[in-house]
Computed example of a mutant assay.
Amino acid sequence: MASAASSVFTLSRDSFGKLTLTAEDGEVHYGVSPVRAFPIQAPDQGISMVLTNGKEVGWIDNLGALPAAIRELVQDELDGREFMPVIHHIVSVSSFATPCTWEVKTDRGDTAFTLKGEEDIRRIGDASLLVADNHGIQFLIRDMFTIDKHSRKILDRFL
């Protein structure tokens, strides 16, 4: 199994745009995908490089420690597979009873979504929340204690 050191494996894209991992021993693995071990608590640490059958063929301890070219390939692949906007500010909610429409500012832009029920807000760890909309899209609030006062007041009504 490969580790995070750049001399242990290299990454490239094949003619179909899939990631190809070449191990230190020269073994080539086609169609590898990065999978985060801790996508919410430590998104840049512990990334497994796996084949389509789930077999791990490489490991990245810390994404930031990789050479820029490899880091960019891994990040591009993760960005293409994952969609979890981070809520920075809750602008408004249509009602404090569910279902209701939330207007929010996220790291991916402004949007509105429908919250079906209070059970669609889940705690992750001590401070993080996952909010699922009526289409199953997960929105992340990284730290409900450091979000602005207006947003915190709205959250308190639902928690």
Rank of each mutant, 00 (worst) to 15 (best):
F38G: 10
V50F: 02
F38D: 09
V57R: 03
V32F: 13
D107F: 07
T52N: 14
L63S: 01
T98V: 10
V131C: 10
A42C: 06
F9G: 03
E118A: 05
G26P: 03
P39H: 01
R123S: 14
R108Q: 12
R122N: 14
D44Q: 02
D61Y: 05
S48R: 05
S95T: 01
Q41V: 00
S33W: 08
E72R: 04
D126P: 15
P67I: 00
D25L: 03
L21A: 07
W102L: 09
F16M: 10
R81W: 05
G117W: 13
E24R: 03
F9Q: 04
M49H: 00
T52F: 03
I40G: 06
G64I: 03
V50K: 02
L21K: 01
E77N: 08
A68K: 06
E24Y: 10
L63P: 00
S94D: 14
I87H: 12
A127K: 12
G31D: 08
D76P: 15
G125R: 06
T101G: 11
A132K: 15
S92N: 11
V91D: 04
D44S: 02
E118P: 01
S15V: 15
E103A: 09
D110E: 11
F83A: 04
T111L: 08
E118G: 05
P85E: 01
F96I: 12
F83H: 14
G54F: 00
I90H: 02
G109M: 08
A69T: 02
M84K: 06
S128M: 11
E103N: 15
P67D: 01
K18D: 13
S48N: 04
I124W: 10
V86D: 14
G109H: 05
L51A: 02
V93I: 15
E77S: 09
A132R: 11
V74M: 07
L115E: 10
K116L: 09
T106L: 14
L66P: 00
I90Q: 03
V8F: 15
S12K: 10
I121L: 07
I40E: 09
V32M: 09
E27L: 15
T111F: 15
A42E: 07
A97V: 14
H29E: 10
H29D: 14
F38P: 07
L63T: 01
S33I: 08
L66A: 02
T106I: 13
F83M: 04
Q41C: 06
L73G: 05
S15Q: 13
R13T: 08
G109N: 05
D126L: 09
Q75K: 09
E119A: 10
V32D: 02
I70D: 10
T22G: 06
P39M: 00
H89D: 11
T22W: 05
S12C: 12
G117H: 12
P99D: 03
V74T: 02
F96M: 09
L129H: 15
D61E: 06
